[in-house]
Write a protein that binds this DNA or RNA. Structure first.
Lengths: 199, 199
DNA sequence: AACGATAATTGACCAATGGTCAACAAGAAA
DNA sequence: TTTCTTGTTGACCATTGGTCAATTATCGTT
């Protein structure tokens, strides 16, 4: 028997849009499901055919938005002719910082609700349903290391540390100006990234 | 007129204990205030004379527990004769990792609920009410730099990056074994800490 | 000791919300 | 058309965070 797919993707994406809009302006806790479905123009019960619960829509939103941001950065990099690995990484970091600085609400939303476990789990789910693109930065990184003869004991771990260092410090630098406002903080950060890559 | 202080600190600490116990075993969301006050043996209203709301008790718990852990590490360090700055920092990091590895529930609680803004704000409040000790690692770090003639452009920023790198990566390594289980991950981390301090 | 003032405590009560489900609608297959 | 599956609806429920008027305990003052 063929599986019947009648679920309209429009409804899900409408709910996602409404959820995102409301989470941005009112925060996750202060947004009720009733408000989301009202905004999306569907009944409350419908919400629960597309999402397991309130956390489910939040996780999917974070995963999608983060992933899009990341892929945009990667696409823009491919249009440049930057060819040194450390500069490539810094280009991507810079793109992401700029974007988040201009979208502090998004950053706030991500940093308040993101946790590594949730993120990887949801990204994985979306990837298996082919609703998201692959993890391109790892490829970039591994290729760069091969081509440029960079010696790293464990590239995956190095990349991981760079990502963590960037995200945790930049979030604070942009949102709370701690320990420095982002523009003063950048040089230190980039120096450390170079150190991590070039030994 | 003298200020009347009749509030019993016992009640507050009983509520904190009950809250901690329940948050550990049932999680923050699944613990109701009714359960906390029942466990502490007070009425619901009393809760709200000691804490502004449910988030308030959570923030105070995180701040207190994190602070205690940190100070325990520092006290133990002072009993050793480690005198190189990078080794001192690694000693403290090691102490904290060990502790959190043995108390995964606490780590989970902290990492799920901690955000930098909340943390610094709450620590600051507690410090002003003299309910917590001072920020000793910064002193250690600055003293070490002076005594050992280490050259760092901006020591505060370096220390900050070390703390962020350690916390974000170790949390994931212990809880999710990503990118490596903590024991395999440690060498990479310590190498990077040394790089950060020694250039 | 007695009194008044202030602060702490209580628990019934309320409003809001996350989630359920029986009934209904719409479309596909026969 | 009839049947079956899947999507949709919104009234309804249980739970919970937070309030507040009334009560009790404690301190300073006379």
């Amino acid at each position: 028997m063929k599986k019947d797919i009648r679920k309209e993707p429009e409804k899900e994406s409408k709910l996602l849009d409404s959820g995102f809009k409301l989470f941005m302006h009112k925060g996750f806790q202060d947004t009720s499901i009733q408000e989301i479905v009202d905004d999306a123009g569907v009944a409350k019960g419908t919400f629960y055919t597309y999402f397991k619960d309130k956390y489910d829509i939040r996780n999917k939103l974070i995963a999608k938005k983060s992933n899009k941001l990341f892929n945009d950065a990667y696409k823009k990099l491919k249009k440049t002719d930057i060819n040194k690995l450390d500069e490539q990484v810094i280009f991507i970091v810079d793109f992401i910082i700029d974007y988040l600085e201009k979208n502090k609400l998004l950053l706030q939303f991500i940093s308040k609700n993101l946790s590594w476990g949730i993120y990887t789990k949801t990204i994985n789910e979306l990837y298996q349903k082919q609703e998201t693109e692959n993890n391109t930065i790892l490829e970039l990184f591994l290729n760069g290391i091969k081509e440029q003869n960079i010696e790293l004991e464990n590239p995956e771990v190095t990349l991981y540390m760079i990502i963590e260092l960037v995200s945790s410090t930049c979030f604070n630098s942009i949102l709370y100006k701690e320990p420095l406002p982002i523009n003063e903080f950048k040089p230190y950060l980039y120096k450390e990234i170079k150190k991590l890559i070039n030994n």
